Amino acid sequence: MTKSKQAPLSKADFEALSEFRHQLRRFLRFSEDAAQAEGLTPQQYQLLLHLKGYPGREQATIGELAARLQTQQHGVVALVTRCEAAGLVTRTPNEQDRRQVFVSLTKAGEQALQRLAALHRSELQSLAGVFQVANITAFNDRD
């Protein structure tokens, strides 16, 4: 965002920001509850999602997962270890660089992710109007 002279925020701007944050938190709460109902932590669900959704492939390194999860690598190592113990993921050494390990979903991880992702998609579809760009047009630079 550039530091140009902008008009002060209006009451409508604050209402739009408040509503967006409310709906975002509502979705995150839904996600936490859905993961726990599946027997996973929210972090485990996010890890599975980022593995399946990694651009161009269905495996990722610890460093790549840490970047996606916005956390430290040592925390991701612990999370992967817990997911591996639960039978959700496997680790495979990188053949080109033995210092790296690829993490990928197991069949059980894939099945849990499919169930949870379907629930998340339905919830996002119900919130589609809230997250449309039109709802935040008040934040565009005014002439």
Rank of each mutant, 00 (worst) to 15 (best):
H22D: 05
R57V: 05
L79N: 02
Q70D: 03
E38R: 03
E15H: 10
Q96F: 10
G87L: 09
L51E: 03
S104M: 12
T71N: 00
S18W: 14
A34Y: 01
P93Q: 08
T41V: 07
L17A: 15
V80T: 01
Q125H: 11
D141P: 12
S126V: 10
A117I: 09
A134G: 05
E19P: 04
K5T: 14
Q59P: 00
R68Q: 15
G75P: 03
F27W: 07
Q73V: 15
L127R: 09
A117Y: 04
A12C: 09
L69I: 04
S18V: 15
F27G: 00
E58W: 07
E38A: 14
A86L: 10
G109Q: 03
R57S: 04
N140S: 10
L116V: 02
Q100G: 05
I62P: 00
K52T: 03
A66Q: 11
A134F: 08
R115A: 11
R82C: 03
D141E: 11
Q125V: 11
V133E: 12
T61S: 06
A12I: 14
K3N: 15
I136F: 10
Q72F: 10
F27R: 01
L116F: 00
D33K: 06
L79G: 02
S122F: 07
R121L: 13
P42M: 07
A12H: 12
G129I: 09
H120W: 08
L47W: 01
R26L: 11
